[in-house]
């Protein structure tokens, strides 16, 4: 049996097999031979992927399959965890993301988390925070950006009269949309979402799905989800992860209707997971 090391060189040089990856010259994010370790435990094995601009890319897979870890390598959030190591290549617009200034990476690649985490500040200040720390001081610019971000996050009409109230007074779904607005305020090129709806009811979930669809033209969206229907509804491309490996990455329709791998078929038809 060939070791991964033996396979790797051919994978780099030969055009990669799946359809979504074929268009890689115009990809927003290119990932090659990505390996990730928590101490001595290898959480990701030789991931290759190209993420297309202004599309929604979804990652599915059972718990612990590495999909969130993979997402968190894309804005280098994993670096905040001690004793981790990343190997391989991560390109953002053909720039090496792993050697860029980390604050610059995270400004360009925003993130929304599983648990909504507004700051203990007012609604307005939550959205304005990213602008403040990025050196924007002009009041009119900030006010415009806050309104625009809240509109994109489909929250503006609900909060426009209560911008100075604490964010904690909002409902769970509103808080998560506020977190999306906060991330959008710094105009990220890529928006990563780590199971953003897992704590929300179906109506709040639907609202977020709708808004993600609306903001596709502004940014590139990568979403990790436990909910296969959500991936099927939302995503242009879907990747299926299992035990730290990317089993299959293809157009969403292909993944759900005509999967190329046995494991993918078993998972999407509910035979395991």
């Amino acid at each position: 049996m060939a070791t991964p090391q033996a396979i790797r060189p051919t994978q780099i040089n030969v055009p990669i097999e799946t359809e979504s990856v074929k268009a890689s010259p115009m990809a927003k994010l290119k990932i090659r031979n990505l390996n990730f370790y928590y101490g001595s435990f290898q959480a990701l094995h030789d991931i290759d992927m190209a993420i297309q601009p202004n599309k929604i890319t979804a990652f599915i897979g059972p718990s612990g399959c590495g999909k969130s870890t993979f997402l968190r390598t894309m804005n280098r959030m994993n670096e905040t965890v001690r004793n981790t190591k990343v190997e391989g290549e991560l390109l953002l617009d053909d720039e090496n993301l792993l050697t860029m200034d980390v604050t610059n990476v995270r400004r360009r690649v925003g993130m929304v988390f599983q648990k909504s985490n507004p700051f203990p500040k007012s609604i307005f200040d939550n959205v304005a925070y990213g602008l403040h720390v990025n050196g924007i001081r002009k009041k009119s610019v900030i006010e415009d950006a806050v309104q625009r971000s809240l509109e994109h996050a489909a929250l503006w009409t609900e909060v426009k009269d209560t911008l100075n109230r604490p964010a904690s007074a909002l409902s769970g779904g509103q808080q998560q949309r506020l977190c999306i607005a906060r991330a959008l305020a710094v105009e990220p090129e890529v928006l990563l979402l780590d199971e953003p709806c897992s704590a929300l009811d179906p109506i709040a979930t639907l609202k977020i799905e709708e808004l993600l669809f609306q903001i596709k033209n502004l940014t590139t969206i990568v979403i990790v989800t436990h909910n296969m229907q959500q991936a099927a509804r939302l995503a242009d491309s879907t990747g299926f992860f299992l035990l730290g490996k990317l089993i299959e990455f293809n157009d969403t329709r292909k993944i759900f209707q005509n999967p190329g791998k046995k494991e993918t078929e078993d998972y999407v038809t509910g035979r395991f997971g």
């Binding site: 804005n75 959030m77 905040t80 604050t103 610059n104 990476v105 995270r106 400004r107 360009r108 925003g110 993130m111 988390f113 648990k115 985490n117 507004p118 700051f119 925070y129 990213g130 720390v133 990025n134 977190c179 906060r182 991330a183 710094v186």
Partner: peptide
């Protein structure tokens, strides 16, 4: 909470900010 720190770092702030 860790979530608070991550939310801020994810916006491109430095550790000190």
């Amino acid at each position: 909470p860790r979530e608070q720190r991550e939310a801020s770092l994810a916006l491109g702030t430095t550790k000190w900010e």
